[in-house]
Design a protein around this nucleic acid. Structure first.
Length: 377
RNA sequence: GGGUAGGUGGCCGAGUGGUUAAAGGCGGCAGACUGUAAAUCUGCUCACGUAAGUGUACGAAGGUUCGAAUCCUUCCCUGCCCA
């Protein structure tokens, strides 16, 4: 169930509450990515301390390892990973793109060669939904094809049509099998495709809306397109999605991008950026990202940012830089923790601003500072 | 004292007459990363110069050669073995 609690006075931003089997999610929300049943470097207690409300898991990766026989015997992803809050699982559609050298797309589905050992494996709408049912996620994504960027219009149109046909098959499988998540019903989100073509985005959105799903995602972005194309895809899709259903921008984004997309009416985000970039030594700050490994922080006794989490604030930049250079694992963990905290705090601030009706001002102020100091950081 | 193996750019380590300012790794400096095949990948790293280029450089000094990190002589230093 999704409830719209408030709308911003200055933008199309929405404040919402999404109730799923394992709990309640306040939107707008950022969902940390835990592809293989783990948000890299972090303990579930860390995620709780960060206030993470919902995390991701991945159909493709979890199906390869540990595999669904094992997963089924062990009671599903929540029990297996000891995380009893909401989980959203991606359908594996993105891996069709990211592992595209290893797969073959047909009407039936996608045949992969496992990136682990080359074993052939089939992913289809029915198989993806079956896997996600076994995982028992709160929200399952319909199986889609994520076309590369750039795609010519013919390819994009055919791909979108395939995604729609696959979507119908997913929906039929769900109606027949009625998958559960814990004690509740599993929800299902469709994924709008259409590449960089406004009319195709509209067509895709309308075809999926006709399926009356629980929510709608915008996909086919974060595949190497310029930022302007990314924003345009969101702009082109949002107006055709129902007000009363949650909207999810898949795989995005940077802090300013997320604020811009919230202003366009997006409610949910996921992105590997905060955690991956953390493992690569980059820290999100109110003044834009900084490379903690840089010599500039050698003697910097300040915390990572003014607003960082108390458990990280006790450490100086100089110390964390040292940990990084010494290849200490604590560096990866502290930076991952901090970056997720930064993202989750940003969402909380956004929710407060929407409730106050001043999201537009908040967004402008944040982005101005974030970008301005990039030049003279 | 005798024998033996060596001394190469911040460190380790290739290279045994020209295509060598000298492989590769480490270290250092910077950058990329957007539904995670990512604790990964990329660039730069002798000096001066934007560059072409110039100058220095393979323990030291001399020599052979058109040309030497590479060959010869002497010296210095280090590891190992024997006394």
């Amino acid at each position: 169930m999704f409830e719209l609690l408030a709308k911003d006075g200055q933008t199309k931003a929405r404040l919402g509450r999404l109730t799923v089997a394992h709990g309640v999610v306040q939107t707008p929300i950022f969902m940390p990515v835990g592809t293989q049943g783990s948000v890299k470097t972090l303990h579930p207690d860390d995620l709780e301390n960060l206030g993470a409300q919902i995390i991701l898991g991945n159909t493709y990766h979890l199906n390869l390892r540990p595999g669904m026989d094992t997963m089924g015997k062990l009671g599903g992803l929540h029990k297996f990973t000891s995380w009893d809050k909401p989980i959203l699982t991606d359908s594996g559609g993105f891996q069709v793109w990211s592992l595209s050298k290893l797969n073959k797309i047909t009407e039936e589905g996608v045949e992969f060669a496992s990136h682990l050992d080359g074993t052939r494996m089939m992913l289809s709408p029915e198989i993806s939904m079956q896997i996600q049912a076994t995982l028992g996620s709160d929200i399952a994504m319909l199986f889609d094809e994520c076309p590369p960027y750039p795609s010519d219009k013919d390819y994009a149109a055919n791909s979108l049509a395939l995604t729609t046909r696959w979507g119908i098959r997913c929906k039929e499988w769900v109606e027949k099998n009625k998958p559960r998540s814990g004690d509740g019903r599993q929800m299902h989100f469709g994924i709008v495709q259409g590449s960089s073509y406004a009319d195709l985005r509209e067509q895709s959105a309308k075809e999926l809306v006709a399926l009356d799903l629980d929510g709608y995602a915008i996909g086919g972005i974060s595949v190497g397109e310029p930022e302007i194309e990314m924003m345009r895809a969101i702009e082109n899709a949002c107006p055709h999605l129902p007000e009363e259903k949650p909207r999810y921008a898949m795989g995005l984004g940077t802090p300013p991008q997320m604020l811009e997309m919230i202003a366009l009416g997006v409610d949910m985000f996921d992105c590997v950026m905060p955690t991956r970039i953390a493992r690569h030594g980059v820290v999100f700050t109110e003044d834009g990202p900084i490379h903690i490994k840089n010599k500039a922080y050698e003697l910097d006794e300040r915390p990572l940012t003014e607003g960082t989490h108390p458990s990280v604030a006790r450490f100086s930049r100089a110390y964390i830089r040292h940990l990084w250079r010494a290849k200490e694992m604590l560096a990866l963990r502290l930076l991952s923790f901090h970056n997720l905290h930064f993202y989750l705090q940003l969402m909380e601030q956004a929710r407060e601003a929407i409730a106050a009706g001043t999201f537009g001002d908040f967004k402008e102020k944040f982005i101005t500072r974030y970008n301005k100091n990039q030049k003279n950081k």
